[in-house]
Design a protein around this nucleic acid. Sequence first.
DNA 1: CGTCCTATTGATATAGGTCAACATCGGTGG
DNA 2: CCACCGATGTTGACCTATATCAATAGGACG
Lengths: 251, 251
Amino acid sequence: MGGQMRPIDIMDALKRNVLECEGPAVCKTCEARHGGVCASLSVPQLVELNKHSSRRKVEAGNEVIGQGESVSTYSNILNGVVKLSKMMADGRQQIVGLQFAPDFLGRPHQEESTVTAEAATDTEICVFPRALIDRIVSETPDFERMLYEQSLKELDEARDWMLTLGRKTAQEKVASFLHLIATHIDPENASPRTFDLPLSRADIADFLGLTIETVSRQMTKLRKEGIIVIENNRHVTVPSLERLRCVAGND
Amino acid sequence: MGGQMRPIDIMDALKRNVLECEGPAVCKTCEARHGGVCASLSVPQLVELNKHSSRRKVEAGNEVIGQGESVSTYSNILNGVVKLSKMMADGRQQIVGLQFAPDFLGRPHQEESTVTAEAATDTEICVFPRALIDRIVSETPDFERMLYEQSLKELDEARDWMLTLGRKTAQEKVASFLHLIATHIDPENASPRTFDLPLSRADIADFLGLTIETVSRQMTKLRKEGIIVIENNRHVTVPSLERLRCVAGND
DNA sequence: CGTCCTATTGATATAGGTCAACATCGGTGG
DNA sequence: CCACCGATGTTGACCTATATCAATAGGACG
């Protein structure tokens, strides 16, 4: 496992790997391989990581990490949506982030999680032992940089959402949520016209700081205004993302 | 026009360093030296950084970095409080973070800021040229790790605040704010009984997603309930941090 | 065909927003 | 030193967006 990688650009690492067409077969077809943190690893590192990692399915509603729990593994999201949430002593809950493939779950240099991570939809993750990742992190500045970049992305998203929570109306909040999902649900397609909501009304309410009833009312209002089309409660079509953005107050 | 640049005496700093082998004199007395990102730098790195850095005063209300502006410098907060905020097209505003000494302002590998940074109080910062920090970052994994750690801390704070914004009542919000200030205003003393609020009522409202009037009403309510004592609008005494925490809904 | 679960819809209550008057403070200039 | 001023904060009266409570509807599944 030799010395440190020389500092290289992330895209270079990606390109090099594609050119060489090497690495574990599993990783080659991995949904998280491109764009995910693994993109910063060398082929030998990938091979070793692969030896000790395993795929796991997590059904909707199941916990990946509990708030305050100590964590012995990290993982990559391969598909599905994971919600991060916080709860107050009296049960009030707030979803503080949604993670999509190929996001990395877990935080090196931190014993226990400050949030609960729960599968919002049926989800597949690639699970890594903590000690191995910790070693790779300390050996591979590029890998740590990928994690740093992800945490900065999450920070930006959290702050955007603070604006939504603190200053937007219920209608703007619901539109913001739909816009967020439309632009994140499919890693391949930046903005599909049509998709399934990964969250129940209750989850949406917890994400937006609203009640279920208000979410429901605003959804029907958006439907009646022609901003969205809803089928079977979960399936949504957005005729114009631009109009949705506008309703969301994003310009 | 505050914020005048005061170049540091390079020769003097160098001379002292050579004699004492302990880093630049300025840094030795720096408020941000311990606990700040500079703590991860070697003495030669400190010397070089010091050569190109300068102290600057920023008066309350002045911008440090504008939202969407490109950034050519980074800085460390030496004292004072900096507020990070986002604004919607129609003027609605949300403060998305407060930074205290010895926090680092700015983000390597990112051209323009996604938030506005503005001095909430009169503030002193230590300004570094962008290119130099970028080089030090790429050469010094420990330094980058400090930045990573800070961004994780900010992420945790942002998520805590999302819970506050989304799920707490006005009274809990105001109490949460007072608790936050009490525990952060003084880097020396974790929780002073008495302190000056670094933010105006308008800023507090923008931080809590409330109106000025509601903030004011909740402050007087907390005062009448004996949770806090207020003098001159800005000076607050907290008889029991524990009681305040409780009102804030933190247990 | 009921049962459970999720979502919608309606009626009503209320926390917090809005608008307006007033108070307090710190500065400035006569 | 006082009078005036603008900026900042408080208080009151009222209003509205959203919460709450309650009833109904629609699927999924046995």
